[in-house]
Design a binder for these strands. Sequence first.
DNA 1: GTGTCTGCAAACCATTTGCATCGGT
DNA 2: ACCGATGCAAATGGTTTGCAGACAC
Lengths: 129, 129
Amino acid sequence: MSDANRMRMTKQRQIILEELKKVTSHPTADEVYQMVRRRMPKISLGTVYRNLEILAGLGHIQKLSVGGTQKRFDGDISLHSHIRCRDCGRVADLNLKLESHIETEAARFTDFVVLGHHLEFIGICPECQ
Amino acid sequence: MSDANRMRMTKQRQIILEELKKVTSHPTADEVYQMVRRRMPKISLGTVYRNLEILAGLGHIQKLSVGGTQKRFDGDISLHSHIRCRDCGRVADLNLKLESHIETEAARFTDFVVLGHHLEFIGICPECQ
DNA sequence: GTGTCTGCAAACCATTTGCATCGGT
DNA sequence: ACCGATGCAAATGGTTTGCAGACAC
């Protein structure tokens, strides 16, 4: 699964990756499915889920830990924060970064080993205002 | 729903609130159900879900927007960040707060109306290390 | 040829909901 | 008495999985 040596670059996987790199939205698995289906009508939703998981594991895409019921995926793997619409769930990028030592700082307050962080804003998108 | 005047303080609702205020963990709906069941064995899971939603709407408890598949609830309604265990999903408080200007700052970078933010750390809890 | 990947459909799991009845105010 | 709340069970919705055949290497 996470061993790139044994991973096959199937047509399905290729197209999922391409479509995700094309957009700046942060599609849910089902939205990726709809996008990919235009180019490959026979692909199954299960395959989309499996590949999103694999591609995220390899670091080619990002699985977003945002609120809401559905997971969202991002073709942009750079560290950046997001804002989610309270009303429609849409997610947009927000180019605000925390100082890089925030995790070191956080480690002082917990007995957990700190691995990373997410900053998410909640708001109302232009469409919903 | 959100009109406190019309809300009845049923025994179920009372106990759910009490149990949640008792603990510093951040239980899932099912964990709350298990806690409440000790005092009220006939309560239904549906009632727990309905009341958690209502209590959160009234601001008596907090619904956490953390990653993971299950929603979690917090009897502590103060603004604070959390750290979630990558391996077991456990959530703990982390007394690290961002400067209060962060939302005003964020508003400059987006066309969303900014309403709030969540800061979540990911790590490995003592049990899982 | 081998072993991973796919499509399909069924299974899973957290959460929500319809409904008849109950109980707070 | 009114109308919101409960218990129960079925429905929902997103995601995962088992399996037999297909395909990348």
